[in-house]
Simulated assay, not measured.
Amino acid sequence: MKTLLIVDASPNSATSNTRKLTAAYADAWLASNPGSRIIRRDVSGNAISQLSQDTIGAFYTPEDQRSEAQQQAVALSDELVNELFAADEVVLGSPMHNFSVTVGMKSWVDQICRVGRTFNYTEQGPKGELAGRKAVIVASSGGDYADGTPMAHLNHNDTYLKTVLGFVGITDVSLVSAGGVAMDAGVVDQAQEKLLALV
């Protein structure tokens, strides 16, 4: 049985383009992988807490030495990390907000980038521990920030997520972007066609 993890970051639950696209991908993936499971993680709004001093302290305390309060502080991060390790494939629905990821997506990243869990320091430098998985970044933006466009240098959504995924060991990454929705709503349908071709 295969497992797909979908992380949705758009705070717009009703008419989000990225949520529409990740839902379409999930349906097609499940049809191609009958009997498999999908983990859905909504990181919008306040669903994922920002790192606190207590959480960071718990990260760097050996598990068998953590106090009850530290165990509680790290519980969400452990849950999110376990979801990643359980997944064969990860889909990140990430709309661009002010040239970068949403606050929810950033909080998710901060919770899953864990030394000793998702990466380790070695003599050759940091080594990600999630190799062998496939990831798809599903992005959207009002303007067109794709490679080769005049505003490409302002796109810190796609580049950031590719960097994070690579850091934790996921290097098989595809990007499907609905860029320029404010000018042409048809780009969402075009993105969906490209996205479903990846299933």
Rank of each mutant, 00 (worst) to 15 (best):
M183H: 12
D147W: 00
Q190Y: 07
A26W: 02
G93I: 07
Y121L: 15
N120Q: 08
A146P: 00
N33T: 12
W29G: 01
A73K: 08
L161A: 06
E83F: 02
Q192G: 08
T18D: 09
V91D: 03
Y25C: 10
S44D: 07
S107M: 04
Y145N: 08
V90S: 10
V138W: 08
G125N: 12
D42I: 03
D54G: 01
L198F: 04
S49A: 15
D189M: 05
D110P: 05
N157V: 06
G180Q: 09
Q111A: 13
L161F: 07
S16E: 05
A87N: 04
A139P: 00
F59V: 09
S94G: 03
P150I: 15
A146T: 15
M105N: 02
S141T: 15
N155P: 00
L175P: 09
K134D: 05
W108Y: 15
E89W: 03
S177W: 06
R66T: 11
L80D: 03
S36N: 04
T159L: 01
V173R: 10
A73S: 12
D64L: 02
L80K: 12
S49T: 06
D8Q: 13
Q65Y: 00
H153V: 12
S32Q: 14
E193P: 00
V81M: 04
E63L: 07
E68P: 01
K134Q: 13
V103L: 06
V168G: 08
L84I: 14
L5D: 08
A131D: 07
V164R: 01
S177M: 07
F167K: 01
D54R: 03
I137A: 13
A152R: 00
V115Q: 13
Q111F: 01
T18V: 14
S107K: 00
L175D: 03
A178Q: 11
Q111V: 06
K2Y: 00
V136R: 07
L198H: 05
K194L: 12
Q190I: 13
E123N: 10
V168K: 09
R40E: 10
Y121R: 11
D64K: 00
H153F: 14
S44N: 05
G143Q: 05
S49C: 02
R19V: 03
V164D: 09
I39F: 08
P95W: 01
N98V: 15
Q192H: 03
R66L: 07
R41W: 02
T159C: 02
A146S: 15
R37Y: 02
A31R: 09
T171H: 14
T102A: 11
F85P: 05
V115K: 09
F85G: 11
S52W: 10
G104M: 04
V115Y: 05
S77T: 09
M1F: 04
F99A: 07
Q192W: 01
V81Y: 01
G148R: 07
A69I: 08
I56P: 04
E123D: 10
L130H: 06
Y160N: 14
K134F: 04
T102Y: 11
S67Y: 05
L198P: 02
D27C: 00
Q124P: 04
T18I: 10
S100I: 03
I56F: 06
